[in-house]
Design a protein around this nucleic acid. Structure first.
Lengths: 341, 341
DNA sequence: TTGTATGCGTTATCAT
DNA sequence: ATGATAACGCATACAA
C-alpha cells in the first residue's frame, strides 16, 4: 500500500514509537527531532491508517447521526439539515466522520458493531426501542431536539417558549380566537408546544378550550388533510388565527385554506415554527419563529466530543431561544377599519 | 473489551481460522461445524471488530457521500435527500456506512487518509479540484447527477430529455413564447438543460432567440432576484411560459411574478423540474418533471459496490427518464375563450 | 476440512 | 529523549 509509519521512522533514523508520538502530539520528543520528523512526514506524504489507529485505540473516528424516523421526515427537512451543517463544522475540525443512519437495520448494525464512537440522536420518541438500547450500551449519546428525560444530555430549541411567544404575538395583534395545529403527542416536541400554547392562553384569561388539532406526523400532507376535515366537519367556527408547531404543518394548513377560499391573512392568520427557507416562498410569505440551528448543531457536536473524551458535561440541557420573524401571514386585528385601537 | 473471535473459537473447540471462515461465509468448513459455530456466535453475542477487520482487509466499510457545493444547496434539498434514501437502502444491506462530506476540509481528509472505500460524488462541476484529485487517487468513484466526461461511471436523470419534454408539453398547450430559467452554465446539468431546451425549440421551427435567464445558483432567492430584474429591466415583453431547470428556480420565479401582480397561470405559465414535495404546496401547485430518485440512488450505490469489488461495470452511463406531473401552473392556451381549437 | 502462524499499521508499556 | 516490542482483533497462506 502506501507509506507506513515504519518508512517514516527509517527515513528519519528513529523508531516508530518516536514518530507515533510526534503524530499524536504526545510529549517526550526533542524539539529538533520533532521538527525533522514533521518535515519528513510531509515530504513523504505519509498518512496514518485509520483502521490500524482505531484498532490500537479502540476508536472509529465515526460519529453517528441517527434518527429513528424515516428518511424524508428528517433528512429532507431543512430544519434538520441546517443543524447537520453546524454539526459538520465542528466534526470536521476534530477529524471525525459523520455517519448518517436512518434505518432500523443500520442502527442495529451500529449498536452491535461499535462502528461509531458516539451518537447524535435526532427526533427520538419515548417508544423508540433504540432509546433503551442506547441506554444499555455505553455509547456516548446526545439527544438533539426537544426531550423530557434526564438520561442523556440534550440540546434543543425552546419549543415551549417559542409557541408561547407566538401566541403572545397573535394576542398583541388583537386575536382572541386562536387554535394550535400540533404534531403527534407521541413526540416530546408536541407536548412542549402544547404546554407553551396553554400557558400563553391561560395567562391571558381566555376561556380555555381544547382547540388543538393533532396531526399524525410533522408532514405537510397530513396537516393538509387534517385541516380540510377541520374546515368541513367541525361545528365550531374557524378561529381568527392558527399557530403551527412546524412550518411544514403551516404549509398544509395554507393549502387547505386556499382550496376553500379562505384568505390568508384576511380571513385567517397563520404563524409557523422553524423558519425553513420555503417560508419566504409561500404566498403570502409565512410569519414564523426562528432559532439558531447552526449553533444548535455545533453545540451538540461539541458536547458529544467532550463526552467521548470523558469530560464531565456541566450543563446537561442547553435550550436555545426562539425569535419571531414577521412576514405576511398574520393580520393585525387592531387596525380593522383603518382605526388604530 | 467485548468478545473476540478467539473466545468463540475456544467455546466451539475450533481454531480462530475456522470461525473467521464462517463469519466471512468462506468455503471450506463442514456443514455441522458451521452450524455449531453460528449458534455459539449468536449465543455469545459476538460481533466482529470493524477496525481489526478493516486493518486486515485494507478496507473501511465507509462510503463517502460527497458534494463540493456548500451544505444547503445539497443537503437540505429533497432532490438529493431522496437519492440518499435510495443509496442508504442498498448500503445498509451491504454493511456499509454512509459518510457525509460537504466541506473542503473534510474532503481533503477523506482523500489523504483513505477513510473511505468508495465515493458517490454529487453536484460536481468541471472546475472542482476534487475531481482531478479523485482521478489521481485510486478511490472508486461514481458521479451522481448530470455529467459530461467519461472518466467516471455516471448515473443521472435525463435532464436534456426532461427539459425537451417540458417544452414539448408547453407547445402542445399552445405556447409559443417560451423562456428557460436555468442554473449557472458552470454546472453540467445547466448545459444539458439548455441543450434540451434549444433542441425542442428548434425542432418546432420557432424563431430561435436567446431567451434564457442564467441564475448564479440553483437557489430560489437567486432565481427570484434574477426574475425581478427580468420583469423590471428587460425591454422584451414576458413570454407566455417559463421552463425552469429546477423546482427551486421555479419557486423564485413564482414569488417574483406574484409581487408584480402577474397571475399564474393566467398571465404566465410555469413548469418546474424535479418534483420536490413542496411543489404540492405552492399556490398554484407547480406542474413539474418527475424522475425516480430512489432508483437513481439505489443504482448509484450498486454500481459503486460493484466497482469496489472489482467487477467491470457494463454500462458506464445510466440515464433515468423524466415524466410530466401535471398540476396547476400551466395554462392551456388552446382553450382561450372557452373554445377548443 | 481444519489448524498454525504471521502480517496488517499503530499505540503503549517498559526499558534504557 | 528515545527504542524495542508486545498488544489490538482479524484474515489468510500454508501446512496438516
Amino acid at each position: 500500500m502506501g507509506i507506513r509509519i515504519k518508512d517514516v521512522a527509517k527515513a528519519a533514523g528513529v523508531s516508530t514509537a518516536t514518530v507515533s508520538r510526534v503524530i499524536s502530539g504526545k510529549p517526550g520528543v526533542g524539539l529538533e527531532t520533532t521538527e525533522r520528523i514533521k518535515n519528513i512526514i510531509s515530504e513523504m506524504g505519509y498518512r496514518p491508517n485509520v483502521s490500524a489507529r482505531g484498532l490500537a485505540n479502540n476508536q472509529t473516528c465515526n460519529i453517528g447521526i441517527v434518527s429513528p424516523r424515516q428518511g424524508d421526515t428528517v433528512f429532507g427537512n431543512p430544519f434538520f439539515t441546517k443543524i447537520f451543517e453546524g454539526v459538520s463544522n465542528v466534526l470536521d475540525k476534530n477529524q471525525y466522520n459523520m455517519v448518517s443512519s436512518f434505518t432500523y437495520q443500520h442502527q442495529q448494525y451500529l449498536l452491535e458493531n461499535h462502528a461509531v464512537d458516539g451518537i447524535l440522536l435526532f427526533s427520538v420518541r419515548e417508544s423508540d426501542t433504540l432509546l433503551s438500547q442506547l441506554k444499555e450500551s455505553r455509547i456516548p449519546t446526545i439527544v438533539v431536539g426537544s426531550y423530557e428525560e434526564e438520561d442523556f444530555p440534550n440540546v434543543c430549541p425552546d419549543d415551549r417558549g417559542g409557541i408561547y411567544s407566538a401566541v403572545k404575538y397573535l394576542i398583541s395583534q388583537g386575536h382572541t380566537q386562536i387554535e394550535l395545529v400540533n404534531g403527534p403527542s407521541s413526540a416530546f416536541k408536541s407536548r412542549l408546544c402544547k404546554e407553551g400554547f396553554e400557558e400563553a392562553m391561560v395567562s391571558n384569561l381566555f376561556k380555555r378550550n381544547d382547540s388543538t388539532i393533532e396531526v399524525s406526523e410533522y408532514d405537510s400532507m397530513a396537516s393538509y388533510k387534517s385541516f380540510v376535515e377541520r374546515i368541513k366537519n367541525c361545528p365550531k367556527p374557524l378561529p381568527t388565527a392558527i399557530v403551527c408547531a412546524s412550518d411544514y404543518l403551516a404549509f398544509g394548513v395554507m393549502k387547505a385554506a386556499h382550496e376553500f377560499g379562505i384568505r390568508i391573512p384576511e380571513d385567517l392568520s397563520i404563524i409557523g415554527f422553524g423558519d425553513v427557507p420555503f417560508t419566504n416562498f409561500t404566498n403570502p410569505t409565512l410569519t414564523t419563529m426562528h432559532t439558531n440551528l447552526l449553533k444548535i448543531g455545533a453545540t451538540s457536536a461539541e458536547m458529544l466530543i467532550s463526552k467521548i473524551n470523558g469530560s464531565k458535561i456541566r450543563k446537561l440541557k442547553r435550550i436555545f431561544p426562539m425569535e419571531l420573524i414577521e412576514r405576511q401571514s398574520v393580520k393585525n386585528m387592531n387596525l380593522v377599519g383603518g382605526t388604530t385601537l
